[in-house]
């Protein structure tokens, strides 16, 4: 397996990974005097599950925020589907087919589970204000069509019984699942997951891992995820980027990364000179 092949590669379990979907080139992000990200480059291949790991404060979430347009890096380029991306607002990035979940769940607490997931399809719903107001023809048809798609995702993530529950009343683990559902509803090309399993018990983690693998497998969605649980990372991901203090200290297959001396040092807390 040659993961550096620009045409793509085949994983040990036989999945075919394509060419470069997203490429970060020499990204540097500063907050005042703090370098959250220092000159980092890496790519994400089509169909891949790519993990970003690193100790607390390494800059992982900042990297996802750069990808999704919340932060604009001072230096570097973001390439998506072979084009260099200009400065973009988050809602414009969403329309490119990039969906995400947040480290601290960001759902709409006042709305039902169903409505939350339906919001994931907003970019695909085109009927205008007037059409909506009279709720005739287009608007109603569109609502029904999108509802059907959303119901498939509800079935897929096994949350049928909480469909009409206000999100604010759900326990933590289910909220994480609903947030994933909302992201999936957008049928994204690239799905960004910021610690999708944080704070879950073993059983919930297993469920979530299964969902992530199924999403990748059934919908062909490319996934970039941040995760602290090493076991999960090693099981799920095809390739791993390791960050520490805003720098990239490792990049490769789980096995390569595991045996990388810099990575071992970072995790064992060996002091930097």
């Amino acid at each position: 397996m040659n993961v550096a092949n620009p045409e793509g590669y085949t994983t040990p379990d036989g999945r075919r990974i394509g060419g470069v979907l997203m490429e970060m080139k020499n990204i540097t992000l500063r907050f005042g005097g703090v370098n959250a990200i220092t000159n980092i480059s890496f790519d994400i291949r089509d169909g891949e599950i790519r993990a970003i790991i690193g100790p607390n404060g390494a800059g992982k979430s900042s990297m996802l925020n750069v990808i999704s347009g919340f932060y604009v890096p001072q230096e570097g380029e973001v390439w998506f589907k072979g084009y260099k991306r200009g400065p973009m607002k988050p809602y414009q990035v969403a329309r490119l087919g990039i969906a995400r979940t947040f480290q601290n769940i960001a759902l709409f607490d006042g709305m039902s589970v169903l409505d939350n997931i339906m919001t994931g399809r907003l970019t695909m719903m085109k009927s205008g204000l007037l059409g909506q107001a009279i709720w005739w023809g287009g608007a109603q048809r569109e609502e029904t069509e999108n509802r059907e798609k959303v119901e498939k995702i509800i079935d897929f993530l096994e949350i049928q019984n909480i469909r009409k529950t206000p999100v604010g009343r759900l326990p933590y683990g289910l909220k994480k699942r609903v947030e994933l559902a909302r992201a999936l509803a957008a049928e994204p090309k690239l799905l960004l997951l910021d610690e999708p399993m944080a704070g879950m018990n073993v059983e919930e983690k297993e469920d979530m891992s299964r969902f992530i693998l199924d999403v990748n497998d059934e919908f062909g969605t490319t996934i970039a995820l941040i995760e602290h649980d090493m076991g999960v990372v090693m099981d799920l991901s095809d390739r791993v980027v390791v960050m520490d203090y805003g720098k990239k200290i490792g990049d490769g297959t789980p096995d390569e990364v595991r045996n990388n001396q810099d990575v071992i040092d970072a995790y064992l807390g060996v002091s930097h000179d």
Binding site: F70, Y91, A94, A99, L107, F108, M111, T119, G120, A186
Partner: peptide, 11 residues
Amino acid sequence: DMDIAAEIIGV
């Protein structure tokens, strides 16, 4: 409910 999350879904 949450304007940041709204932006991320394309609003």
